[in-house]
Structure formats: C-alpha cells, structure tokens
Design a binder for these strands. Structure first.
Lengths: 105, 105
DNA sequence: CTAATAGGTAAGCGTACATTTACCTATCCA
DNA sequence: TGGATAGGTAAATGTACGCTTACCTATTAG
C-alpha cells in the first residue's frame, strides 16, 4: 500500500512518463511506436523502460495484438495518490473536484 | 511549471516525506525535534535533508522562533499534482472530491 | 525460410538521492 | 561567559535512476 503510493508518485515524477499518461488519456490506446513518435530525441529503449515503470505501477496496461503492443491507461488511476492528497489536504482538495463552480468573486 | 510538478511528485515519492506531510496536516506546526520523534531510527540529519526537499518544493514552510524551527504545510498544496491528475483522469478524479456522496448502490 | 518490422533486454555510464557520522551555528539560561 | 539545547551543513558511501548502444525475440509478409 505504502509501496504502491511510492510507485505511483515515483512513476509520475518523470516528465516523459507524465507525458505518456497524458497522451494515453487522449488516445485511449497506442502501440509503442506511435507513443515514441511524441518523443523525438528519446530512444525506443528509453521509452520501453519508462513503460515498464508505468506498468509496474499498474498505471498502464499492455495488450499484445499481432506484432504490436498497445498501451492504455491501467487500473491504478492514481488512487493511492488521491487518497494521500485527500488525507493531507482534506477540504482544500475540493479545488480538484468541480469544474462545476468555476470561480466566483 | 513542469519542473514544479516534478518537484512535488518527487518530494512525495519518499515515504518519510509523505509521513511528514501527514503529521503536519494534523499538528499544524511542529519543531524539527518533535517531527523527528515520529521517526525512530532516522537521524536528525536525514530529517533535516527531507525537510529541505519539502521546502524546495514549497510544500512546507519554516518559521524560526527562538531556538526552534517550526514547520508547517506550505503554499504548494500539491496544486500541480492535482492539475495533472485532473488533466489525465478527468471525471474519474471525482472519486476524490466528495465525502458528500459516500457511495450509493 | 528469410527479411523486415515492432519491441524488449542487457550492460555500462553518469548523475541524483538517502543516509550516516562528524562538525558547526544559534539561542537560551544560569 | 559558558554550557546545554535545537538544528543545519559537509563529506563520504551505497543505491537507484535515466539514458545510450548493442543485441535478442516475436510476428508478419514475400
């Protein structure tokens, strides 16, 4: 549990990995190659290693179809992170929740 | 901005630092010594270094009074983290927001 | 079967980080 | 003024991490 929080926070501590999550939140699923195209100047090996970290944290899932490996967001939708933030910041975390009330003067 | 997210995520990637934040969320402010008492088997130097990381991320604030240094939660209440999570997980992040609706069947 | 394509794995390297021991600074109080 | 108390800084060390190059595996198509 505490280790799963560590994994999630550590996974998201890297900007390339954060970008991967953001990309997957928009494209639903992508093969490694398409994912890698978003990062010119970063090797496939590096991307592969980032994906392993994210997989290890259950933040992405791999599904093999043919010669491709499709990645999409996993079951760990930062639950531990969220739990932690709520625990520490309580009400202040409401800032997060609502698009509903934009901001009133 | 992206670097501030990195700082926040990295800061919270360590379990001692997460504990410090949790403690400070309950005690409002504490001198380093009282904080350190929560971590037997961890040196003052280590605690001091953790506090520097948290300070660097603006997640805690130091206030010197007499011979003490009181620490409390800082201005960076994980805002970037929250922004990122909302960006990636959108609605799913609602899980966070409400104590209001516990869960209905 | 073989070549091309999609990806992962391994080893090596440099840097960042957590921790410890030892020492230094600042404040309080007798 | 001097010692006790609160806490930080420095140097050393081990480990974790990100990245690269080089090589290996699996699937598809000719």
């Amino acid at each position: 549990m505490t280790n799963s929080a560590k994994k999630a926070f550590s996974a998201m501590a890297d900007s390339t990995r954060r970008s991967i999550l953001q990309i997957l939140s928009k494209d639903v699923e992508l093969p490694v190659g398409s994912l890698a195209e978003h990062f010119p100047g970063v090797t496939r090996a590096a991307i592969s290693s980032h994906l392993r970290v994210l997989r290890d944290a259950d933040m992405v899932v791999e599904e093999r179809r043919g010669q491709f490996r499709f990645y999409s967001l996993g079951t760990n939708r930062a639950d531990d992170v969220v739990r932690f933030l709520r625990d520490v910041y309580q009400d202040d975390i409401n800032l997060l929740a609502s698009d509903a009330e934009p901001d009133r003067l």
